[in-house]
Every structure is written in structure tokens, then in C-alpha cells.
Simulated scan of single mutants.
Amino acid sequence: MKLSNGYTRPGWTAVSLIALGAFVWLLGRALTALPVGVAYAVWTGIGAAGTVLIGSVLFGESITPLKLGGIGLIVGGIVLLRSAPA
């Protein structure tokens, strides 16, 4: 969304809206296999970790060891949630 400049750049606006639609569709698919709480936690966790990584690639934001540790904790939490009995 940042690259769409307030949805004034048509190309990036389209990419942003398509990605948003895909994310919501993928959450719906995840809900067919996972409980709501787990599916939403996984969805937001992946979004948070992915945002840090994409921010680094697209905007040159720094990735510090602390940020990598945070991503590791998010991924670890997702793994624990997914592997916990229902």
C-alpha cells in the first residue's frame, strides 16, 4: 500500500488490492482446516513477519538481530499453535 502512494498510482494500487483479496481468500481457506483462533494467529503472524521482510526488500529497512529474533519467535509460536492438539 505504501508504494501505491495513497492509491494514486494505478499499478501499485492494483497490486495492493489483489494482494489484499488473496490474503482474505487464503484466510478463508485456512479456516476450513484450522480453528478460528489458530488460523487468525497464523495469518497475522505470517503477515507481521512477512511485512518486516518485505519492508527490507522494497524499502531498504534494516533487519537487525533483534528483528530476526522477533520473526523467529513468531514462527516458533505459529509452529506451536499448529502442532497443539485441538
Rank of each mutant, 00 (worst) to 15 (best):
V42L: 14
A14R: 08
G76L: 09
L81N: 03
T13A: 09
A22S: 12
P65Y: 06
V24N: 04
L31D: 10
V42E: 02
G70R: 07
G69N: 04
L27A: 10
L20E: 08
W12L: 03
L66W: 12
A48I: 13
G55W: 09
V52M: 13
L73A: 12
S83L: 13
L73I: 12
L53N: 06
I78L: 11
G72T: 12
L34W: 10
L34A: 08
T32F: 05
L68E: 01
L34I: 08
L53T: 03
A41T: 12
V75I: 15
A49C: 03
I18Q: 03
G37L: 05
T44V: 15
S83A: 10
G77D: 02
A30N: 12
A14E: 03
T51R: 05
G55C: 05
L27W: 08
G28K: 09
T32R: 09
L58I: 02
W43Y: 15
F23N: 12
V15L: 13
K67W: 02
I18T: 13
E61Q: 13
T44P: 00
I74C: 07
V79C: 04
W12K: 02
K67Q: 06
L68W: 07
P35S: 07
G72P: 08
L81A: 07
V15F: 11
L34M: 13
L58W: 10
A30F: 14
T51P: 00
P65N: 04
V42R: 01
I63T: 00
A49D: 03
V79S: 06
L66M: 09
G70E: 06
L26E: 12
V42C: 08
F23W: 13
T51F: 12
G72M: 00
S62M: 10
L66F: 11
F59P: 02
W43A: 13
S62N: 09
S56A: 11
T32K: 08
W25P: 00
R29L: 15
S83R: 15
T51Y: 15
L34D: 07
A14W: 10
V79L: 14
V15T: 07
V52N: 02
L73E: 01
R29I: 12
P65W: 10
G69Q: 05
V79R: 03
L53E: 05
L31I: 07
G60C: 11
A48N: 01
V57W: 14
